[in-house]
Amino acid sequence: MKALGFPKSHRLLRPADYSKVFDDVKLKVPHRNFLILATPNDLGHARVGLVFSKRNLKLAVQRNRVKRQVRETFRHQNDLPGVDIVLLGRQGLASLDNPTLQSILNDLWRRLKKKYHQSSPSRAAESQPAGRGTG
């Protein structure tokens, strides 16, 4: 069984990494409680950055709980495309329990993969094995 870690290589660490996503958004996945902004990278794997404000989640314990859930669901997404992702929290997150958060996040990751493959047919074709055409 493959170990599911969350190494530094899978995180957005520097302000420049966040700025790159905010300045050049290619994919948006909205939800009532979250907003995912993403832009392709050349690393071959996804990286995630989290933005949760005190305005939307008043207590640190609430922010930390939601961030843990996001990281945990992200770790289990082994087929995400090579994109840099910024996940922003919106109001109403504090009232959600963990199973609800997990189901929302899993749906958001699925929608992100779908949008990525719809928006970039050339990248989707590159990821297909050679000799598998539609003709």
Results as ranks from 00 to 15, higher is better:
residue 68 R to H: 13
residue 94 A to T: 10
residue 112 L to T: 13
residue 7 P to G: 12
residue 111 R to C: 14
residue 73 T to Y: 02
residue 92 G to F: 12
residue 19 S to K: 14
residue 78 N to D: 04
residue 135 G to D: 11
residue 87 L to G: 05
residue 76 H to E: 04
residue 126 E to S: 10
residue 52 F to A: 01
residue 121 P to D: 01
residue 124 A to Q: 12
residue 6 F to K: 02
residue 25 V to H: 09
residue 96 L to C: 07
residue 97 D to H: 15
residue 121 P to K: 01
residue 24 D to T: 10
residue 15 P to N: 11
residue 48 V to D: 03
residue 33 N to L: 13
residue 35 L to S: 07
residue 17 D to K: 00
residue 64 N to P: 05
residue 63 R to K: 14
residue 106 N to W: 02
residue 17 D to T: 00
residue 39 T to W: 00
residue 6 F to V: 02
residue 43 L to N: 11
residue 78 N to P: 00
residue 49 G to C: 06
residue 65 R to E: 03
residue 115 K to W: 02
residue 83 V to Y: 13
residue 13 L to W: 05
residue 59 L to T: 01
residue 25 V to E: 02
residue 14 R to S: 09
residue 122 S to G: 04
residue 73 T to R: 14
residue 90 R to Y: 12
residue 23 D to Q: 09
residue 65 R to P: 11
residue 24 D to L: 08
residue 131 G to F: 05
residue 37 L to S: 04
residue 14 R to A: 08
residue 58 K to T: 05
residue 99 P to G: 11
residue 116 Y to G: 08
residue 124 A to W: 04
residue 129 P to T: 03
residue 127 S to W: 03
residue 78 N to E: 08
residue 27 L to D: 04
residue 37 L to K: 15
residue 132 R to A: 03
residue 30 P to V: 03
residue 74 F to Q: 06
residue 86 V to Y: 01
residue 91 Q to W: 08
residue 67 K to S: 12
residue 6 F to A: 00
residue 72 E to Q: 09
residue 50 L to W: 02
residue 131 G to N: 05
residue 123 R to S: 12
residue 89 G to L: 07
residue 135 G to M: 02
residue 14 R to T: 07
residue 102 Q to Y: 07
residue 122 S to I: 10
residue 124 A to M: 02
residue 56 N to F: 15
residue 86 V to C: 01
residue 110 R to T: 10
residue 36 I to M: 09
